[in-house]
Amino acid sequence: MTVTLVLVVLMMAAFAGWLFRQSFNVRPWVAASARGQLPAPIPPSVTAPRVGLGVLLAVVTSVFALTVSAYLMRREMGADWQSPPLPGLLWGNTLALALASLALQVAWQAARRGATRRLHQALAVGGGLTLAFLVGQLVVWRQLEAAGYYLSSNPANAFFYLLTALHAAHLLGGLVAWGRVLARLHGGAGALRQRAGVELCALYWHFLLLVWALVFGLMLSS
């Protein structure tokens, strides 16, 4: 549980620290005057969808941190732990996901500039690469299964399948959002109006790339 503990403590500490900063020198019982200035608006960059995504990512972080904690705890526990061999295809998949993430970054920039065509292309490439990643993961599963590394034969295998499946499920969820943005673009919505959606997709993809890199690295190390 150490990993989770550290992560959650860090998240809670950052959050509590922020709350304390908001509240430390305030004397709440003092009223404001109507003639006084209206307080400054919060920075325009802090929009509700962005904050929402941030919170969501915190939740997802918690999910993965806990699974990884369980993985580490279990790994340290028994001599019967036998990591499955990692097929070479996983490197290819990693590359695909990285490129997908990059494509979405390009899409985000295109959306900011209002370049609809470029946005369209970049989005399509990003989605396609993501699908390629997912199919690749599926192939990896088949390869492992064909080689006799079943889910039930060893906890290490079970964790491998669980972590990859969880990650893939999150990407699938992302693809739903991606599909919505794409559908709206097809419906004739301008690139600028889709900026928020594209931006969320891009950030989400970057995050999942990071998660994948950590998970993959963890499995390489064992």
Partner: peptide
Amino acid sequence: TVMALLAFPALFVAVLMMLMDRLIGTSF
């Protein structure tokens, strides 16, 4: 709510793992 958002994933993961143990014979 903040706590629940961070804590419920633990139950979620545990539930998934137990479902796998129960349905497809893993040994978490």
